Amino acid sequence: MKILRAALLLLLCSTPLAQAAAPARVVGLGGQITEIVYALDAGERLVGADASSIYPPEALKLPKVGYFRSFSIEGVASLRPDLVLASDQSGPPQALEQLRKLGSPVVLLPSEPSLEALDQRIMGVAKALEIEARGTALVRKIHAELKAVQPAARKPRVLLISSHTGKLQGAGDDTAAAAMLKLIGATNVLASQQGYKPLSAEAAVALRPDVIVTGNMSVDASGSLDAFLAQPGLSATPAARGRRVIVMEDLLLLGFGPRLPEALRQLEAGISGKAGAR
């Protein structure tokens, strides 16, 4: 009888019914990661996200756990996640380790602004959620759409600006926005710089950009597009004088996520003067 019971128990443990269920309570740390979950039609599994998770609109309704670079351990733990999907820039590291000690599996995903890393992000999320077929389909869809995106006919000098904190920050190389400019063949006037750095009024004037690219939040922080362009330095540039400005939704511009083809189309249209510039 004992042998029979043992055999029955072994059989039950080997059946799909006894396997661990796919993650159902997920927290996203990083706007690009959260957006991928929604793009994979798995948004219903999200029970929380960080403050950078601003797209799609449903993400704004999720309980927030702070900013992914300095998230709240208590905030995440209170949501009782069975999976935390995090950008590899999430932290600090000891906070991630504490989550693991509390019993929450943490999957770190690459944040680099490259097509290879985007594929890895998507497939990493899909594998963690046990929906790999959806991940493969999404990657194929993105690459198919990218083939249809035409490089900008003009090769203007573009200045990428962030000023939602009230101070001008210029985007150099190794940023998502700069990587997108490369994909459409435009020239980043700050390509010799790494990452985002403060930009003085004098430097902005000297760069003489033909086009300025920025996010909604930077314009909103100024109160209006006119006020944004009137900032010292920007107002004297050829781009500001000609009102050649492309304003994009922030995560679309900065996320290098599943909407990459859409972001490139908006940039190309703005640069060519078809649409998107104001």
Rank of each mutant, 00 (worst) to 15 (best):
P16Q: 14
P16S: 13
L17C: 10
A18D: 02
A18C: 14
Q19N: 05
Q19T: 07
A20V: 09
A21R: 15
A22D: 14
A22E: 14
A22K: 14
P23H: 08
P23A: 15
P23W: 06
G28W: 05
L29Q: 13
G30Q: 09
G31H: 07
G31D: 06
Q32W: 00
Q32F: 04
I33K: 08
T34F: 08
T34R: 02
I36W: 02
V37I: 15
V37G: 11
V37Y: 10
A39W: 01
L40W: 03
D41G: 13
G43K: 03
G43N: 04
R45Q: 11
L46R: 05
L46F: 10
L46E: 08
L46C: 11
V47E: 04
V47H: 07
G48R: 05
G48S: 06
D50N: 07
D50S: 13
S52R: 00
S53L: 09
I54G: 00
Y55A: 14
Y55H: 13
P56E: 10
P57F: 05
P57W: 06
L60W: 00
L60C: 04
K61F: 00
K64W: 06
V65N: 01
G66Y: 05
G66C: 10
G66N: 04
Y67I: 13
Y67H: 12
Y67R: 10
S70N: 15
F71R: 10
I73W: 12
E74G: 09
E74C: 11
V76W: 03
S78T: 04
R80T: 09
R80V: 07
P81M: 15
P81R: 14
D82Y: 08
L83Y: 05
L83S: 12
V84P: 04
A86S: 13
S87T: 12
D88H: 09
D88L: 01
S90W: 03
S90P: 08
P92K: 11
P93A: 12
P93Q: 11
L96A: 09
E97N: 07
E97A: 15
Q98P: 00
L99K: 03
L99R: 07
K101P: 02
K101W: 00
K101C: 00
S104G: 00
S104I: 00
P105R: 10
P105L: 11
V106L: 03
V106C: 04
V107I: 13
L108N: 05
L109T: 06
P110K: 08
P110Y: 07
P110C: 08
P113N: 02
P113F: 02
P113Q: 01
P113K: 01
S114L: 01
E116S: 12
D119W: 00
D119H: 02
D119C: 00
R121Q: 14
R121S: 01
R121L: 03
I122M: 03
